[in-house]
Structure formats: C-alpha cells, structure tokens
Design a protein around this nucleic acid. Structure first.
Ligand SMILES: [Mn+2]
Ligand SMILES: [Mn+2]
Ligand SMILES: [Zn+2]
Ligand SMILES: [Zn+2]
Lengths: 161, 161
DNA sequence: TAGCGGATGATAATAATTATCATCCGGTAA
DNA sequence: TTACCGGATGATAATTATTATCATCCGCTA
C-alpha cells in the first residue's frame, strides 16, 4: 500500500516539457489557432507547481508579452480546461456554497448543474491512516469530492446527443 | 467494508433538530448575541440538504424577515463557519485556481495561506472501487483534498500564540 | 499572397463579496 | 425593570473576479 507523497519539482519539470511538446499538435487537432499568447499561457501554467490564479499567470506572461490582456489570460485558461489541457483546482466556483452538516462527510458533485449531495463513506475518513504530516504539512483532515452526472443531467445529456 | 451511500433526508431532519437545539447555547458560550436573524439563517442552512449559496439562504430567510439584508446573510454564514456551526463546501474561493497537471492526482491545501501542492496517492484513485453509480448519480471520478497547515503557517501560528 | 474566421486588446458590464457607518437591540448589571 | 454598552443589522458604497462586447489583428488555408 503506497503512502501519499508530495509530487517533486523534478518530476514536474520533465512533465512540463512533455506536455508542451504535445500542445501544438493537440490544438491543431481541435482546430484551435496556435498563437504566441496561447502558448505562453500554457507554458507558464504547466511550469507552475503552485496552482496559480489568472492574475498570477497574467503577471508572468506579461514579462514576455507586455501587451497581453488579462481577459485573454482568463479566456485562454478556460479554453485549456475545455480541451483537457488544464483543470480548475475546484470545480465549484461562481459563488460560495455553505454546508450546515458539520459531521465528517463527503460530497458527490454533478459536474454539469453543480448539485451537491452528502455521502457517508466511512472508508473515506480513514484515508490518512492516522498520518500527522506530509512533507512540511501538518495534516488536519481530508474531504473527498466525487465527480458525477446527476440523474437529470444524464437525461439532458442523452436527449441532447 | 462499507460502501459509500447518499445521506438521507430523514437523517438530516433529525440532525437539524439536534443542531438547532445546541445552537443558542453554543452562541452564548462564544459571547455571540442570539438575534432572530442569526437563528433564522442557521435554521435555513441546517435544514438545507443542498449546500445553498448565500443568495438562496437570503431568499428563504426573507420570507420570515422581509427586511433582512443580504450583507447580514453573508456575514452570518461566515460567522457560522468561524464558530464551527457550518463550513464552506470548498475552502478555496476568492478566485479560481488552475492546474496544468492533468494526470490523476490529489491536493494538500494549507487552510491558512491556501498554498496547494500536488500529492501522488495511488490508493486515492481507487476509492470508487470501480463503482459506476451512486443513487441517481453516474460517477466519473473523484478528487481528494487534504486539509493541512504548511510549514510557514505552522511557524506563524506558533509564534502568534 | 489574399481572405476568412477565430483570437486578441481595450473596455464596459456583471456578479459576488466585503467595507463603511449610522442606527438598533440583545445582554447585563444596577 | 430600566438604562446602558457593544455587538449586530440594514442600507449602501466599494472592491474584486470574471465575463461580455466589439473593433482590429493575425494564424491558417487555399
Ligand atoms: Mn455536505
Ligand atoms: Mn494539482
Ligand atoms: Zn446535474
Ligand atoms: Zn500556509
């Protein structure tokens, strides 16, 4: 049973190089133009190990393209997610969602309509196996988000296709 | 090995009643005034199984207190989180965070500074055990968020106390 | 190399959340 | 009970993140 480990910067460097190599081909396959801005945003993102915000990517790309617009960075990041070249760290994001259930539990989230339901899964609560630390981090707990399509959205998707 | 199950509305009804019963006592213990608005927001939240947004709670509470301000609802929900009577469904929320790593992986998040690091934990990828559905949901995948304090924040917290 | 259509930059608009501040009222002690 | 203090509220402005609009630009194909 492998214990959780932090992903190293070394691994990421190699990974970034490979991802960038595939990038133009994947854009072409999707019919997306290969613009310097798009490539720059992709390069900055894939070389970042810290899950940056749009503003942060903007600041970095701006050093090479001083005229790039923040709107372009937002649009590009969104595009990258759509084509599977990136993802958001959390899929829920338009507005905060609150939960009155403070018992330890987890969630299943519909990726289309964002419905969130509670799930009770005792084994999810044992994921850390009593570990107290991970690298520099002092562990406090964990929560699992199961991504799914709810019944309604499944119907909608089927009807649509 | 218990399988994950959806939490029932029945369970929630009983849970809500109990939580509301404790609520005033816990406010008093914290030195927080027991106002009708605060109680109403708490009641609506704890009776909701759908992880509502502030706006949704506002709409509901407004039926009983037509003069309540949306700002009060925001403030109250935040207060409830601070005293442990509620939580946000996702702790990351000021702005979207993007990830260039599309390989299946999970995250450890510092609850104080919101630093996010990748973790490699093969067992986290097997959580669903090949299950395809859960109630009405068609399962697609899952992601684990480990809550923690990073090294720097641990020092800061220690120095502060 | 010309021309089409998507991409970009500039900017306005929208939406969520937070800050400000005068007023109000819950909690406390006389 | 009553008077008072400090936190809580409502109204509103400010801030912040994100998205929409649109004229111009430029990557791509023929
Ligand atoms: Mn929940
Ligand atoms: Mn990541
Ligand atoms: Zn759905
Ligand atoms: Zn930290």
């Amino acid at each position: 049973m492998d214990r959780p480990t932090l992903i190293s910067d070394k691994w990421r460097a190699g990974y970034a190089a490979q991802r960038l190599a595939e990038f133009t081909a994947r854009c072409r396959r999707r019919g997306l133009a290969i613009t310097p801005q798009r490539v720059a945003v992709m390069r900055v993102l894939v070389n970042s190990g810290d899950h940056p915000r749009a503003e942060t990517v903007f600041a970095e790309v701006r050093r090479q393209y001083p005229n790039i617009s923040l709107a372009t960075v937002h649009r590009t990041l969104e595009t990258l997610c759509e084509i599977g070249e990136a993802r958001k760290v959390t899929p829920l994001h338009d507005s905060a969602r609150y939960d009155g259930n403070t018992a330890p539990h987890h969630h299943v989230v519909c990726v289309r309509c964002r419905k969130v339901c509670d799930i009770d899964a005792p084994e999810f609560n044992r994921l850390l196996h009593g570990r107290r630390t991970l690298g520099d981090f002092e562990l406090l707990g964990c929560s699992v988000e199961v991504h799914a399509l709810c019944g309604e959205c499944r119907k909608a998707a089927a009807a649509n296709a």
